[in-house]
Design a protein around this nucleic acid. Structure first.
Length: 258
DNA sequence: ATGTCGTTCTGTGAACGA
């Protein structure tokens, strides 16, 4: 089974590239983030390719989905005890069971800057993610949380850590939230880089970041032992970041032998 | 130079978030 995660930065703007990628990469299950469209506006062309779709979006911001061509059951929108921001629920997590594998597609809040209310929201949201993983991860069922975590797990996951001294994505509390997920039994499934030495998944649109490989590894796969032990390959599909009209993120692809 | 995107509204450019 091939499972992937991709922050597409607008599913409607990315539709031609998404459809081409689905046909060439042939994933069975895909977690998408930053749909930037409402649930009912999710492009029907994806279903025409044979995928069932569990989308969760409200419009301009955020939005997540699980696509599957191996079945789609027990869809859940939102986390256990999920926090709100400015008193509003945001569409940042959707879970589904696909061919016996439980996956969550997540778009973790950015945080904006340490000390900002959005940063405190990010940490609360990550605690709700941990609680959801604990509630749902049974040892015998492959389980994984995949998505844009907006956290670089280690300094090596950033192209130049010296530029991040006052920034989110690398702070100790954010990394502690990832450690708490690991303590809950999830493992970081680190993909291969298909070029250069680091498996970056995101490169800013600005300042020629992609050609200079000024990237970050912030799109993560956190999996329980049943899922992680079944992984026979994982890689970042950097080809999808090339050319005209890409997302600023590349897909992470994981192959499982179940 | 926060230098690029994508979306929406204050709407044919600006504001916002990333």
């Amino acid at each position: 089974m091939r499972v992937a995660t991709w922050n597409v930065n607008s599913v409607t703007a990315r539709l031609p590239r998404l459809l081409a990628w689905l046909e060439s990469a042939k994933p069975d299950v895909v977690c998408l983030q930053e749909l930037k469209c409402a649930t009912e506006a999710f492009p029907p062309e994806v279903r025409d390719l044979g995928f069932e779709v569990a989308a969760y979006g409200l419009g301009r911001w955020n939005g997540v989905a699980v696509l599957s061509r191996v079945g789609l059951e027990d869809v859940r929108r939102g986390l256990v005890d999920e926090p709100t921001y400015d008193d509003a629920a945001e569409p940042r997590a959707v879970g589904a069971t696909c061919g016996g594998v439980r996956v969550w597609s997540v778009y973790v809040p950015n945080g904006r800057e340490p000390g900002h209310p959005h940063y405190a929201y990010k940490l609360r949201w990550l605690e709700a993610l941990r609680a959801t993983a604990v509630a749902e991860s049974a040892p015998e069922r492959p389980f994984a949380v995949l998505g844009d975590f907006n956290i670089a797990p280690a300094d090596d996951d950033v192209w130049d850590i010296s530029l991040f001294t006052e920034s989110t994505h690398v702070t100790e509390p954010e990394r502690a939230a990832l450690a708490a997920l690991r303590e809950a039994g999830l493992r970081d499934v680190v993909p291969r880089a298909l070029k250069y030495d680091k498996p970056y998944t995101y490169w800013d649109y600005r300042q020629l970041a992609f050609p200079n490989n000024h990237g970050m590894r912030i799109d993560l796969v956190y999996a329980n032992a049943s899922f992680a032990d079944a992984v026979n390959d994982a890689y970042v599909d950097r080809e999808a970041r090339k050319g005209k009209g890409p997302s600023d993120h590349a897909p992470v692809v994981v192959d499982l032998t179940l």
